[in-house]
Every structure is written in structure tokens, then in C-alpha cells.
Computed example of a mutant assay.
Amino acid sequence: MNVNNVIRPPKRFSTSYLSQLNIQAYGSDNLYPQRMSDLIQNSPTGGTCLERYQTFIEGNGLSDTEFSEYVCNRKDETIDDIFSLIAQDIATYNGFALHVNYNLACEICELQHIPFENCRLEEEDDAGSVTYINVHPDWEGNKTRKGRRINVDRSNVKKYHTFNPIPSVVIDQIESCGGIEHYSGQVLWVSMNGKFKYPKPVYDKVVTNLSTDEGLDNVKYRNVRNGFMLSGLFVHKKSVQYEFDENGNAIEKDTQYDLSDSLDAFQGDNNACSIMEIVVNSSDDKPEFINVEGTNYDDKFKVTESSTTERIYSAFGQEPWYCIRIGKLGFSGDVLSEAYEYYNSYVSKQRRTISRALKRIFDHWFEVANPSDNYEIEPLVYISNKSAESSPINNTKA
């Protein structure tokens, strides 16, 4: 069987044109990054892998600590603050966006981070280039300011020129805007999937497993919180109660009990090991206690949970941690050290992309902010108790 005969797989996401905003839609509803963020955050396994992925991308921060402490905008944010936000975006969305402002000398004088999920690409021009990056604070249209909803329309979408630090280009943009006071700067928009292509995060390939992982967690929750966990049933003869009518005649009182009215009193962990009382009418039945064992649904999904977890770890390239988790590799310092070394090489491409982006900006900065010209990111290193004891700091004599 060749590729023409197999069932055609659906596209991961589609890119269409939204004429009312003159932008390329990011997914069928223009909310692909928001959907993916919600999906990964609701998956316990996926969220854990994402946090580790982001931690290793960020590493120990920029190697040049003086440069990392440099204040780069009017909000008093440092390069290290911006760098941390970049690492979060590239881990979650596989891309990031940085806004820069220029002075009258056409030099970059300010750097700010823009949440990647807030950015949308303008439609390509005749030359196949994207001229503007469109930014809205909430493409879902739920955010409010001063009690009023920020609608997704042209009046609330801000356009920024794409990054191009050539002085002649910057001057033309400033003049077309009516002066430097009206100029909104440029945006360096970076995608790991290619120039001006909407990126897919690394976990896009396991969206069904992430959703399954969330469902398995819900099953566990409901199994404990809503499960029918009786200790047993106590069955005995119904007691007869009498009441009197208006003539003074004794009549049997109706004490019919509806079991369905109290079933919730025997559900969940707070009511576990309760005893349900069952009353019977037959005088021949003697009191007895019946053991009851509820159904444990956790056991029914063990294989599903194992395969789902493995695939999520694999999507993030975290097989060593999965093997440690299931006890396949043990938990020694050497194993963890090798896992750190492996994953540092796994995220090297993301780190290199961040370093290059920072260099592109600070090569056109209005002053020498980074004399060393070092934009490398220091990788994480596993520190065991043994290595900590042998470090120069711990061996220093008082």
C-alpha cells in the first residue's frame, strides 16, 4: 500500500486569511496557541515535562552575568527578566517575540517582551514578505479594561513593523508615521518552524495523549471522590410503628424508605467504609451483615496510563527521566548526570536561537551593553552531594 491509498491524515492546524483584520489565522479559529496552552496545562504529565523542558532551555541563565543584569526598558526590567520570558514562550509555543524602540539616531534604545500567543502575522504581500506583526492582548475577547471588554477588532489590534534595523528603513518608517513620537517600533518575531511560519510546539504530536492524560486524572479523581465505597450492608427486619386515627384506632404507620434519597451519603472518600442499613418486610429474614466491595476503575486503565505517559515523555525527548521514573535506570548520581548532559544537548538548538536573537538586537543598541559580546546560555549541571562536598567553596578553611 502506498501513500495514496492510506487514510489521509488531518492537518495539525490550518492557516486561513481573516479579511476583517488582514491577518493570517493561527489555526481554524485563530486560537491555536491558546488551545495548546490550555491542553498542556491541564495534563499533569505534560505540564511536568513542559516545566523541565523550560528549565533546561533557561539553564543557569546567560553566561555574562553583568549583561544579564543590564536594565533594558522603562519598566526597569533586566535582560535576565526578558530572557526568562523568552524561555517560557519558546518552550510553550516554539517561538517568541521581542519589541524594540529606536532613538533619533536610528539606534535601538529599548527592549521589551511580547507574549507570543498575542501575536499574529499580517498577510503576505506580493513579494511574499510579512510587513507587520499584529498584537492583541486577548484574541479570545474575554479580557477587560476599565470594566469594558477588549473586542477583537481593528481598533484594538496594534500593528508593529517586522524587525529590520537598517537605518534607512527605520527612517522611512518614522517619517511615514509622522515622526518619532508616533513611531511604535519594531517586533522581532521568531519561529522555530521557519521565518514567518506559525510554529507548532514540540508536544503538538501528542495532543490526543495529553487529552487522555487529563481524562485519566479525572477518572482517578472521581474514583476516589465519587466512588461507592461501602464497608457493607446491614440487613434486618422492618420495625413496625403505629399511629392512631381520629377514632382512636391503631393503624400501622407508613415508614417506606426511598434508598435513592441517601445514596450520596455513601459516595466519596469522606464516606468510605460506611454501613448501609437495609430494612426488609419479611419476618423470616434474620439480621445479617453483607460485605460489599466497590469497583476500582484505576486498574482498568493501567496499560493506557503507562503508554500515554511514555509517549508524552518521548515527545519532549525526556526518555531518560521516564526510565528513571519506572525504575529502569535506577536513581544514581551518574545516571542523573548523564541525563542532564543528554538533555542539555537536546535543547541546544533553542538556546542557540535565543542567543542569536539577542545578538541581532544588541548589535544595534545605542550603547555598548555587552562588551564581552557573549550571548551564550550556561547549561544546567547536576550537582550531587559528593560533588558539592568536594567543591572549592566547601573546602575553604575558615
Results as ranks from 00 to 15, higher is better:
2 N>F: 04
4 N>T: 06
4 N>M: 12
4 N>K: 09
5 N>G: 02
6 V>T: 04
12 R>Q: 03
13 F>L: 08
14 S>Y: 12
18 L>T: 06
20 Q>H: 10
23 I>M: 09
25 A>W: 13
31 L>Y: 07
34 Q>E: 14
38 D>G: 07
39 L>K: 10
40 I>Q: 04
58 E>D: 04
60 N>I: 05
69 E>T: 01
70 Y>H: 07
74 R>S: 12
74 R>W: 08
76 D>A: 15
77 E>A: 05
79 I>E: 00
81 D>P: 04
82 I>T: 00
84 S>T: 01
87 A>H: 04
90 I>Q: 03
91 A>C: 02
92 T>M: 15
99 H>R: 11
103 N>P: 09
107 E>V: 01
112 Q>E: 14
119 C>M: 13
122 E>G: 11
123 E>Q: 06
128 G>W: 04
128 G>V: 14
130 V>S: 01
130 V>K: 02
131 T>W: 07
136 H>A: 04
136 H>D: 03
137 P>M: 01
143 K>F: 06
147 G>M: 13
155 S>L: 09
157 V>L: 02
159 K>P: 12
162 T>R: 08
164 N>H: 05
176 S>N: 14
177 C>S: 15
177 C>N: 13
181 E>A: 15
182 H>A: 09
189 W>V: 00
191 S>C: 10
199 P>R: 06
206 V>F: 05
212 T>R: 13
214 E>H: 14
218 N>P: 08
221 Y>C: 08
223 N>G: 01
223 N>E: 10
228 F>Y: 04
229 M>I: 12
230 L>D: 08
235 V>Y: 10
248 G>C: 04
249 N>A: 03
250 A>Y: 02
251 I>S: 08
252 E>P: 00
262 S>Q: 13
264 D>A: 06
275 I>R: 09
282 S>P: 01
288 E>T: 15
288 E>L: 06
290 I>R: 14
300 K>L: 12
302 K>T: 03
302 K>A: 13
304 T>F: 06
310 E>P: 01
319 E>G: 02
320 P>V: 00
322 Y>I: 01
325 R>L: 10
332 S>G: 12
347 V>D: 09
353 T>V: 14
354 I>E: 05
364 H>C: 11
371 P>V: 13
380 L>C: 14
395 N>G: 00
